[in-house]
Design a binder for these strands. Structure first.
Length: 643
DNA sequence: GTTGCAACCTAAAACTACGT
DNA sequence: ACGTAGTTTTAGGTTGCAAC
């Protein structure tokens, strides 16, 4: 091998000799990519453009092909694109063979519409995604490998590949994310509960990003703080003893995880990351389930403030932000935005985002989450008799709640920015927007089409927002409209309770979204306030008994429900007995949280209150004085007193 | 100029040491 | 026993020396 080097001294720099005097090349001599001509002649190429060899050969065409590593990367991308395309094709075939909208699909295929768009227009029917087993998933991969047609597919509108379908339901090595002595199985159980029953509502979490980082151990979209907060919420849905801090006390469900999350939050004070914001919204959710609405409101407020400080509300206009990052930031912002509107609505306060606030566009990405099936998960419990598997439609739910929250946002400004200048016209315009929103709900969210907890929640939350919007005006009439605020409230309360009953018959009341007790409570208050017990004692009791019964059932798992139940009973007793033993704490609860209800129904805007004597209440005095002073103004603004 | 094959590169899989 | 991080091995590829 040393034929060209007669002595060791002849060996040029960069070469070294192996143990048996074989020539070895130093790394400096290897050109990373040789040109096509040098490759053809297996000759040394210096990597220049043109290279010395091509020049010396009289100007050969010196070209460089992509290196194998670049080509590998391209191939990986192509595999992912093919995989996505394959799954979508399968879904289309499934829909075609089921006969469901077959003609429509064929006509769209003939028009050469991309598969992704067709599926989106069809409302994101689920592929067999959720029920995919690891084996079938690997079979899919195998069949992809063996399919060597090499047909380049057009790019879909999906973002970069997330976890596989089966992996979206798999949470591995969870114990690395928490110091609590919970096993991986328990952690997975709690996370599955969270994602099944609470996740689509106000969460602000991009599941696929979270799952990917959770399983791979990366801390970009997952963190111990976020996981512990999520576990705390998951515990509210679990009956396992590990879910409780005190195994004998159901009220302590998730308390250990919550305390751990608060400890981690105190350590990372000042950290401004998406996971901190997401964790705060979960801590708010946990507190709302528990009934500590002051803390719930506090964390919701902290989350939206931090989101604005970090600039999550501005990402829609920043082109250089990668799609993945933008998606997570958008989702997070809208999650905390929705949460803030919910609490502002309940408490009758202005939201934390300014009236003309410019914020990021609603997420428009067609995400595979939409296609996944929703399967009721309850751990070891024997599943409900009905087969409730159906498309999750989480993105449709999310987008619809975003839309409704935007309307609520502007409605809150109309109502509370300057109460003196509230006009009937402005108010009814907002109401019209709400009605339009409801009438243009996507097909897949219509009642009867889909009955997942989150879809039912969309409807219930709509009626809740109607109640909370109209309640403050329950004592007024609109001069130029036949609409009665009290009637609208009562109808909305009836509809909300009917929906809760449907929820109960489909899913039971063991696992309900943490905000549900608040909706039931608002309906109960409306029923109590809208009926005069002296005139309709039986009807009053019957109506309110419905809400009390629902709240009692939920009170085993939601502390908020227990409190709400107490307040309703307290008010029901008051309306039916002059010497009822009143619960002062309950009264305080109502007046501090439920300002809109207090303003309109509980303490009516009349000189003599309808329900008992509470004229010494400072709220009433203030309202009465406002009423007297602004009687004329009311008329100018399009209202009149209803009583 | 052609071409066998050693040298080399990179990614992924398998292995190993170590801490809990 | 288990998970993690670092190391080694393996597989699949390219480069380019040197014999022909």
């Amino acid at each position: 091998m040393l034929t060209n080097f007669s002595t060791r001294a002849d060996i040029p720099e960069g070469y070294h000799l192996g143990p048996n005097m074989r020539r070895r090349r130093g790394p400096a001599f290897i050109t990373k990519t040789a040109c096509t001509e040098c490759r053809k002649g297996r000759a040394k190429c210096d990597g220049q453009q043109p290279c010395a060899r091509c020049t010396s050969k009289g100007g050969l065409k010196c070209e460089y092909n992509l290196s194998v590593h670049v080509r590998k990367e391209e191939m990986r991308q192509e595999i992912n694109e093919l995989r996505t395309h394959y799954q979508m094709s399968e879904k289309i075939f499934e829909l075609l063979t089921s006969g469901d909208q077959a003609n429509l699909i064929v006509s769209k295929l003939q028009q050469k519409e991309p598969l992704g768009e067709i599926l989106e227009q069809l409302g994101g029917h689920s592929p067999a995604g959720a029920s995919l087993t690891a084996a079938s998933s690997s079979r899919r991969r195998e069949s992809l490998r063996s399919d060597d047609t090499g047909v380049a597919q057009s790019k879909t509108e999906y973002l970069s590949p997330g976890p596989d379908e089966s992996e979206m339901y798999c949470f591995e090595n969870g114990s690395r994310w928490t110091k609590l002595p919970l096993g991986d199985t328990v952690i997975e159980h709690l996370l599955l509960l969270y994602f099944c029953w609470e996740y689509p509502i106000f969460s602000g979490i991009s599941k696929r990003h979270f799952v990917r980082d959770f399983n791979s151990g990366h801390d970009r979209y997952c963190s111990p703080l976020l996981v512990n907060a999520m576990l705390a919420v998951g515990c509210r849905f679990s009956d396992q003893v590990e879910a409780r801090m005190d195994p004998n006390d159901g009220d302590t469900a998730g308390m250990h995880c919550y305390l751990e999350a608060e400890r981690l939050l105190s350590i990372c004070r000042g950290e401004r990351s998406v996971t901190v914001i997401q964790a705060m919204s979960l801590l708010s959710t946990w507190n709302s389930s528990r009934g500590d609405y002051k803390r719930a409101r506090f964390y919701a407020g902290q989350a939206i403030r931090l989101a604005v400080e970090v600039g999550l509300h501005l990402d829609g206009d920043v082109d250089e932000v990668p799609d993945d990052v933008r998606e997570v930031r958008n989702t997070t912002f809208w999650g905390v935005f929705m949460l803030d509107q919910a609490w502002s609505l309940a408490t009758g306060c202005l939201p934390h985002i300014s009236q003309e606030g410019i914020w990021t566009k609603e997420p428009t990405v067609f995400d595979k989450d939409e296609l996944r099936e929703w399967i009721p998960y309850a751990g070891d419990e024997i599943p409900h008799g009905l087969d409730l598997r159906q498309p999750s439609n989480v993105r449709a739910v999310y987008k619809s709640l975003c839309g409704l929250s935007t309307i609520i946002h502007s409605t809150l400004y109309v109502m509370y920015a300057d109460t003196d200048s509230l006009t009937a016209r402005e108010f009814l315009d907002q109401y019209t927007r709400m009605l339009n929103w409801y009438s243009t709900l996507p097909e897949v969210l219509r009642l009867g089409e889909n009955s997942t907890p989150s879809v039912l929640f969309v409807h219930m939350y709509y009626y809740f927002s109607i109640i909370l919007t109209f309640c403050p005006l329950a004592n007024l009439r609109f001069l130029d409209s036949k609409i009665s605020a009290l009637e609208v409230c009562t109808d909305a309360a009836n509809a909300a309770v009917t929906l809760v009953r449907s929820y109960e018959s489909l899913h039971g009341l063991r696992r309900t979204p943490c905000f549900l007790p608040y909706i039931v409570f608002a309906s109960g208050i409306v029923h109590l306030g809208s009926l005069d017990p002296k005139i309709n004692p039986v009807e009053t009791m019957t109506q309110s008994a419905q809400e009390v019964a629902i709240l009692q059932l939920m009170s085993l798992y939601h502390g908020s429900s227990k409190r709400a139940c107490r307040i309703l009973l307290n008010r029901a007793l008051r309306t039916n007995s002059t010497d009822a033993n009143l619960d002062k704490d309950a009264e305080e609860d109502t007046s501090s949280l439920w300002k809109p209800l207090v303003m309109g129904l509980i303490w009516p805007l009349a000189d003599t209150p309808r329900h008992g004597s509470i004229s010494d209440d400072p709220t009433v005095i203030r309202r009465l004085s406002i009423a007297a002073t602004y009687q004329e103004k009311l008329k100018n603004n399009g209202f009149e007193r209803a009583m």
